[in-house]
Amino acid sequence: MAKAKYAFFLGCIAPLRYPGIEKSTRDVCSALGIDLVDFNDASCCPAPGVIRSFDRKTWIAAAARNLALAEKAGVDILTICNGCYGSLFDAAHELHEDAELLKEVNTILAEIGLEYKGGTTVRHFAEVIYNDVGLDKVKKAIKNPLDLKVATFYGCHFLKPSDIKKLDDPENPSMLDKMVEATGATSMYRKDKMMCCGAGGGLRSEFSDYAMKFTEENLKNMKDGGAEVIVDICPFCHLQFDRGQKELKGYSMPVLHLSQLYALAMGMDKKELGLDAHLTPVKL
């Protein structure tokens, strides 16, 4: 396989609230032969649950700017967040399917001398590892096998809408579980595994009590299933579980992004994981 090269799309929550996720991603990608280039003119994706809910046209125009910049640089986009992945993937899909919309968006991009031709592919860190790198290569890179009972958290916008994402069964997926188990950890069964964390759609920013009810139900199911650690692939789900547990009583399950779990399993220094940004202490 040729060395894969991607524009590393940081998004908002990872670089600005959990920089350890950014750092771990850089380290893990480097160890697995995924070449990341800084995407230093990127903005917010913009967030699908909020910005798209406020104004669809602003959402797709700003997303198209990011897509066009990657296209101009001749690289595809790698995301580490389901929100960014959902936003940019869905926007690229819509622009691909709707020539009228693409034309309309390009009249906006023309203001800054850009044009989107429709050639950018949007990828998620987790599926690049699963589909392109392969678990055999991951297993070979594990230096510190982990004996952990894990609740895997797929989030919503990684697999759904499944008719366009086409990654795994949206009701009963297994790819993240297999990725976690490649480290030696065990993915624990639980009730209602695919339930939303509660943060999306603007619920956390305006009705956080309701968002927290989703979070608590998930945490209860995870605990009942015997998990001791949560592994996510989205900094926003990550934030919801990490900060949520501080507010709720009776839960203290460390929350790790897949990149942090891999960094740990690949023997990187714990200090490199940025765990001091976590509100729920990570004692592993």
Binding site: G49, C156, K160, P161, S162, P170, A199, G200, G201, F207
Partner: peptide
Amino acid sequence: SDELWFCTTCYSCTE
């Protein structure tokens, strides 16, 4: 209505 904003866009329904 406030309810209009209670959806997290999780896509469970759409699926």
